[in-house]
Design a protein around this nucleic acid. Structure first.
Lengths: 245, 245
DNA sequence: GGTACTCCTTGACCCAGATCAATCGACAGG
DNA sequence: CCTGTCGATTGATCTGGGTCAAGGAGTACC
């Protein structure tokens, strides 16, 4: 779209907001600084319920949040995983479409929606940048549809681990030198909700992958990946070609 | 975002393009007219392969197209269904992320990508309108994730029929007066690919819904819905409340 | 120490939906 | 007319992952 891919590093935020572009919006930054504020949430706290009025947009600074959908009888499906630097909120939308929950302690950098939308209306690059991000999310959602609709439980688990590894590597800007290892940011139940499985099946498949040496575990959350290509093969992804990011 | 919800009716196109907004862009319409052209495709023809360079964006004028993803071993998942007035293409993206296929004979109204992007850069409302549409698609994709991950085969079928009924009603701007009836635009196999099932299961579940009077069939494709609320209940959707659109 | 959490693992059994296979109807071509 | 093709239906059987249930491991608090 344009090559202004440098992202805004705003004030004291430890993250770069992916929503706005630094090179062309330097004079707009002051406006953003004026309307921004921070909010903290505790692990387990619901940030917004589906259908609630949503008065802000923002980025995750630290911690993990999830987007989930629940049927009346309690069946749940996670439809989004929000890691640091991910954008939350829908400019042009009054209400949230899904439940947003903090699964760990969480800090967000928020902008009140109205002034943010005003900014968007006057600076075309912000809307374009947001469009680009939304298209990325849409692509990710569609990849996830393949996983939910067609992959086996084992492939689902392998996919989840490799996706977390990929996003982790992107986040820390490090190409893993030696052994690749990841911390799973979710409980078995949350993984199950993301993958369209039960927590028992998640546990069994993780055990199986461990037994066969595809991964190894240290504690419940810490996963080592001795051979990334092997894991990607188990995930059934074509042409991911081992490239992280 | 803004209330300019009137859509462009461009030239001889029988549809209103949802991508651009008439009220505020009247002087931009001429530019769109200059760069637009039509393309026809035959039923079964692939419009773009995933990974191909994509030189245009556009809207479906008549016919049906699908977005699909295929694994090396042949497992397929449909990730999008494109009906007339739906937008195709990704401004700011060089290549297609999924296969786009015409499932019926199809006419599209296209705009070459470069000039369209230029237009977008100079007229903020176009980018905003596109963002709005992309957010809609993202919502739809996430609803679909709930379907793929958690619904039973019967619920999936009922959901598909009610979604087609809804979009049909929106398209024809008619609130069905008497009996509600829909033409399924997909073969059983295509439905299966959309729902993450096999074609046999699709067939069986349709037969079951018919036997129990939830729907009735005339030929293979024509479905009558005697009681929409009953169908929505079978679909497991909460709070859809029977409102079409 | 004991008790009570929460999260995870493992086993035994079952069933919804996949798989394999036969049949049917509609329609086109020779 | 027969023959072939394509989509749909229906039956018989199998199996991956769900369900139910019983521990185990870690941690916090009394």
């Amino acid at each position: 779209m344009n090559d202004h891919s440098v992202h805004v590093q705003c004030g004291e935020c430890p993250i770069r907001h992916r929503a706005v572009c630094a090179r062309c919006e330097t004079d707009e930054l002051a406006k953003l600084e004026q309307i921004k504020y921070y909010r903290s949430f505790q692990a387990g706290q619901t940030i917004i319920w589906s259908g609630d009025r949503m008065e802000f947009v923002g980025s995750v600074v630290t911690g993990i949040a999830t987007l989930t959908q629940t049927m009346e009888d309690g069946r749940r499906q996670m439809v989004g995983l929000l890691l640091p630097s991910d954008f939350v909120g829908r400019p042009g939308r009054a209400t949230a479409a899904f439940d947003v929950t903090a699964t760990t302690d969480l800090v967000m950098c928020c902008f009140r929606k109205k002034p943010f939308e005003d900014l968007m209306a006057t600076t075309p690059h912000v809307a374009q940048r947001l469009l680009e991000m939304t298209l990325d999310e849409l692509d990710a959602a569609r990849e996830w549809m393949l996983l939910l609709g067609r992959k086996t439980a084992r492939e689902k688990i392998a996919s989840l681990i490799s996706i977390i590894a990929r996003r982790d590597a992107a986040l820390h800007l490090k190409r893993a030198s030696g052994k690749l290892s990841v911390v799973l940011p979710l409980t078995r139940e949350e993984m199950a909700d993301y993958l369209g499985l039960t927590l028992e099946t998640v546990s069994r498949q993780i055990s199986a992958l461990k037994k066969e040496g595809v991964i190894s575990l240290e504690g419940n959350r810490h996963v080592q990946i001795p051979d990334l290509d092997r894991l990607l093969e188990e995930a059934g992804d074509d042409s991911d070609g081992g490239m992280l990011v």
